[in-house]
Design a protein around this nucleic acid. Structure first.
Lengths: 221, 221
DNA sequence: GAAAATAATTGATTTACGTCAAGTAGCTTG
DNA sequence: CAAGCTACTTGACGTAAATCAATTATTTTC
């Protein structure tokens, strides 16, 4: 894996331009390690690690001191994004499952970089703020107890984003169901219901909102 | 309202130290405005506004072009935190309900400041990362469909934070219920159930987890 | 363009949990 | 310590929505 490929993978770096990405890539260190080696723990420096070749497991120690497997990292997976911002998860361990190579960026190097190139910090602040925004939105969605409310909220939101009451569901019902915390069947039924109440006209995934006010009322019920 | 009081109010500034806060306060502008005046809209510069005296309403234009009231801002309330990070909500309006005074920080001034004092940016990055973390946690909680799962997750989390299986519920059931997206009654019943299944011993708000594994099983069911 | 796989709809049944209501326990206040 | 308040518990009941299952569309594949 070439140097600059490590950082590119990590979502937080994906809004950086070429030059900025190069600066980040300069911080990357490469390592060869053996099976069983622990590369991230309370005893290692705070860092982001990216598996280049091989595999690793991440686990934390549960309250009774037992090792609780969280997930397996294959080549291309990474762990510790938040470490770079100084948010530590003290109980997190990453241990190699085979002889592997990995890349790392240390928190202290990264923070120094941010001091030198504030434009990077600004972009990261922006993308984090966007992330908070969308998480808050989804939280709010899930806090509506009725599926009807969540679906109505979703449809109105989509209409606003589109700037039109003519809209097409951008994903399979199964996925939408998971997003709204329900099942495809229920969504299908609710859409039908909305149709019967003349709030929408529906043909498969194509939907026209005929009564935004009606939907709004349901949303806030 | 004194100059430096404006910025202090806003959560994102609350982890700044005295000096940093002063730098931010230097950016604050003060304004007197009349009832009906719009201080935040797509036509105003991107900024954070804090109501010092008086009141305002925030609204957005819903997809059908109608004004949809979001909330009323009284003295001490603010709007537009995210603007400072360049995340705009283009459809958001703030309009004064009476003659009022307000403080503002413009995005461009703020971003310039971040360039000059990277330590501020670093702190904000950290606190945003923490916020993302906790939002993701709660999202994950709410995505469990069964109350039992959410409650088990919560109890195990609390135990880990405490470092002990001996724990005390830190809030009223009513509040916990809202956090877990359920009702006090259901929580009461579920705790009783856990007791009958010998997973916990419960006396009022004092709880001892006697079978972490049992709880884990429920959590992941 | 037929066959196969995947998606969506619809119906029947079950169930988790919210709601309503009544009672009990534990604090607070005078 | 009585009176009152609030938090919690427990029961009975209703309901939204999940689950199970069967049918019908739609898309994909060869």
């Amino acid at each position: 894996m070439a140097e600059h490929v490590c950082a590119e993978i990590v979502p937080i770096f994906q809004q950086l331009n070429h030059d900025e990405l190069l600066k980040v890539s300069d911080l990357v260190k490469h390592h060869h390690v053996s099976k069983g080696e622990v590369i991230l723990s309370p005893d290692t420096p705070s860092q982001l690690v990216i598996i280049a070749q091989g595999a690793a497991k991440t686990y934390q120690l549960s309250a009774n001191g037992k090792e609780q497997l969280l997930r397996v990292l294959d080549a291309g997976n990474f762990e510790g994004e938040k470490n770079l911002f100084g948010v530590g998860n003290d109980e997190l361990y990453v241990e190699m499952l085979k002889n592997s190579t990995y890349c790392s960026i240390e928190t202290k190097d990264f923070q120094q970089l941010l001091g030198t190139y504030p434009s990077i910090a600004l972009k990261l602040l922006k993308s984090n703020a966007e992330k908070i925004d969308s998480l808050e939105k989804q939280n709010q969605l899930l806090n509506h107890d009725l599926v009807e409310q969540r679906l109505a909220t979703y449809l109105l939101d989509l209409a606003k984003t589109n700037g039109s009451y003519q809209l097409t569901l951008p994903m399979k019902l199964k996925e939408l169901a998971s997003f709204l915390g329900t099942t495809p069947e229920t969504i299908s039924r609710k859409l039908k219901l909305f149709g019967q109440e003349n709030l929408i006209k529906q043909n498969r995934h194509d939907i026209e909102i005929t009564s935004p006010d009606g939907l709004s009322k349901i949303k806030d019920a």
